[in-house]
């Protein structure tokens, strides 16, 4: 190579061309996209906290809020006991998980481990379609189908209760849980299955002693996301739970959920009033609980990737 041409090649090294600028531009755009998501979430948190702060700093009392079931924000002497709402949400979510966990894990295991080819593709599309049903439709099913059924089967005056809302919410959460659980099972390498099958393990033994333990973290994350979905769901619960303030003693009692209370009452409060602040305090509670659940799910999934040491069941 001649001295002159080598010089021009070095010049090129020092020149920023279109590729360089495009690369920079894309980096900036992606950065803005990523940061804005964080900014929005923080913004929402700040807004909810600000709106609720007036109430927390004034009328709020921990013992009343968490210890009393008297939620009477429009009475002449208003009381703000949220215990019944918290228990309402928790009981509906709890029952929903009893319904959803076996269904969704069973479906995920079937789709990931037993079905194949067309059956499998069809099932996956169907499950995703189920996940896309609007919650008001589920609420409608609770109101117009489940309600008369529960009245007839259990001989109760009202069919809108924990049982109804729990089943509806469970069916609602099951598809998304199925999808995530199936992903977790699919992420288990086929070589594990083949190694276990070559050893003479039956299909069920392979699933039970190799696939499920290997995908455990993803499965737990799926369940936790289902719990988060249950906690946050509003419309279906509002329509199917009966919406009456009550500490339930049986699944046939009507309850009221945190989310449903906010949805039903917020439109009728004066902006900045005590009642308004109290509803936002419920919102803070929901936000914190949902955040904690999602964080737990996230840590679970990460734990799986890092592959921590397992405690030896047999070697202990």
């Amino acid at each position: 190579m001649s001295e002159a041409s080598r010089g021009s090649a070095l010049d090129e090294l020092d020149r920023r061309n279109a590729d360089w600028y495009i690369d920079r531009l894309v980096q900036v755009l992606v950065f803005v996209g990523g940061v804005s998501a964080i900014v929005f979430i923080l913004g929402i948190f700040v807004f909810i906290t600000k709106e609720g702060l007036g109430f927390i700093g004034g009328r709020f009392s921990i013992t009343e809020f968490f210890g009393s079931i008297a939620w009477r924000p429009t009475s002449r002497n208003p009381t703000y006991g949220a215990l019944a709402l918290i228990v309402g949400t928790a009981s509906v979510t709890g029952l929903a998980m009893v319904v959803a966990v076996p269904f969704s894990l069973g479906a995920a295991i079937y789709i990931a481990e037993f079905s194949s080819g067309r059956t499998r593709e069809a099932l996956k599309v169907l499950v995703e379609l189920l996940a896309a049903i609007p919650s008001v439709v589920w609420g409608f099913i609770g109101l117009s189908i489940m309600n008369p059924l529960i009245i007839r089967w259990f001989d109760t005056p009202v069919g809108l209760n924990v049982l109804n809302a729990g089943i509806i919410l469970g069916l609602m959460a099951a598809p998304i849980m199925t999808t995530i659980a199936e992903d977790a099972l699919k992420a288990v390498p086929d070589s594990y299955r083949e190694a276990a099958e070559a050893m003479g393990a039956t299909r069920w033994q392979v699933i039970r002693s190799v696939v499920i333990p290997a995908g455990k973290n993803g499965l737990v994350a799926a369940v936790l996301l289902g719990v988060g979905r249950g906690f946050g769901e509003t419309m279906a619960v509002l329509m199917a739970s009966g919406h009456s303030i009550n500490l339930p003693t049986s699944p046939l009692d009507s309850v009221r959920a945190l989310t449903a209370t906010i949805a039903a009452e917020l439109g009728e409060t004066a902006n900045g009033s005590e009642h308004y602040g109290a509803l936002f305090t419920l919102g803070i509670l929901l936000f914190v609980v949902t955040f904690a659940i999602n964080l737990a799910a996230d840590i679970m999934v990460r734990g799986g990737r890092r592959g921590r040491r397992a405690t030896a069941e047999g070697g202990a």
Binding site: Y192, A195, M199, S209, V210, A310, G314, G315
Partner: peptide, 17 residues
């Protein structure tokens, strides 16, 4: 293929099955 379980359980898996 080291299965994602302890060394002990890897070897004990087949006898257990």
């Amino acid at each position: 293929v080291g299965l994602p379980m302890t060394v002990y359980d890897n070897v004990a898996l087949s006898p257990r099955l």
